[in-house]
Deep mutational scan, measured.
Amino acid sequence: MKVIFLKDVKGKGKKGEIKNVADGYANNFLFKQGLAIEATPANLKAL
C-alpha cells in the first residue's frame, strides 16, 4: 500500500515521502499513530 508519511518514522520514511509499505503495517501502526495517510489521488493532490 502506498502511504504519505506525515512524520519521520525511523527506518521507514521521512515526512512528505511517498512509499510502499505492507498493508498490515500501514493499517495497524502508521494510520493509528497518525504517522501516515493512504496515498489516494485526492491526498496526493492535496500535497
Rank of each mutant, 00 (worst) to 15 (best):
P41L: 04
L47E: 06
A26Q: 00
Y25M: 11
A22L: 10
G13K: 00
A46M: 14
K10P: 04
K2I: 10
F31I: 13
L47C: 08
L35Q: 10
G34T: 06
N27F: 08
A22F: 05
K19V: 13
P41R: 05
N28P: 03
K12P: 01
L44F: 09
G11P: 03
G11Y: 11
A42I: 10
I4F: 15
A36G: 03
P41G: 09
I4G: 00
A42M: 11
I4V: 07
G34M: 10
I4D: 00
N28M: 05
G24V: 09
N27P: 00
K7W: 04
K12Y: 15
Y25L: 08
V9C: 06
G13P: 00
G13E: 06
G13Y: 01
V3D: 00
V9P: 01
L44A: 09
L47G: 02
G16S: 07
K7A: 12
A22D: 14
Y25K: 06
D23T: 15
P41A: 13
K14L: 15
K2D: 05
A36C: 04
K14M: 06
K14S: 11
G34Y: 04
F5A: 02
G11C: 02
G11F: 12
K2M: 05
Y25E: 07
D23H: 13
K10C: 07
T40M: 05
N27T: 15
K7I: 09
K19E: 08
N27M: 10
F5E: 01
A26C: 07
K10G: 09
V3N: 01
N43V: 08
G16H: 14
D23N: 13
N28S: 13
K14Y: 10
L30G: 00
G16T: 03
G24A: 13
A22G: 13
T40W: 02
A36S: 01
I18T: 02
Y25C: 09
K19L: 11
K10E: 15
D23W: 15
G11A: 11
L44W: 07
E17Q: 11
K12A: 14
Y25A: 08
G13L: 03
G11W: 10
N43W: 02
A26K: 09
G24M: 08
G16P: 04
K12M: 06
G34V: 04
K15W: 06
K32F: 03
K32P: 15
G13T: 02
F31T: 04
A26I: 03
V3W: 00
G24I: 08
V3I: 12
A22R: 06
G13S: 06
K10Q: 11
D23S: 10
K10S: 12
L6R: 05
N20H: 14
N20P: 13
K7G: 07
K15A: 13
F31S: 03
I18N: 03
G34N: 15
K32E: 14
G11R: 05
N20M: 13
L44V: 12
V21F: 00
K45P: 09
L30N: 00
G34W: 05
L44T: 05
L44S: 09
P41W: 06
K12L: 13
I4W: 04
Y25W: 12
K19W: 06
N27L: 12
Y25F: 04
K7C: 12
P41K: 07
N28H: 14
V3P: 00
A42E: 15
T40L: 08
L35G: 04
Q33N: 15
A22Y: 08
T40R: 07
K7N: 10
G13I: 06
A22T: 15
E17H: 03
N27W: 10
V9D: 02
N28T: 08
I18F: 07
M1W: 11
F5W: 04
T40Y: 09
K7L: 08
A46S: 11
V9Y: 06
N28W: 01
Q33H: 01
F29Q: 13
K7Y: 10
N28V: 06
K45Y: 09
L35R: 06
N43K: 12
F5T: 00
A26E: 03
E17K: 02
N28Q: 15
L35H: 04
K14Q: 15
P41D: 11
G11K: 03
A36H: 01
K14N: 12
N43G: 06
G34A: 10
D23Q: 05
N20C: 13
K19M: 14
F5P: 01
F5M: 06
L47V: 12
G24D: 08
K45S: 13
K19T: 12
N27I: 12
A36P: 00
D8R: 07
A22I: 15
K15I: 10
L6V: 12
L6C: 08
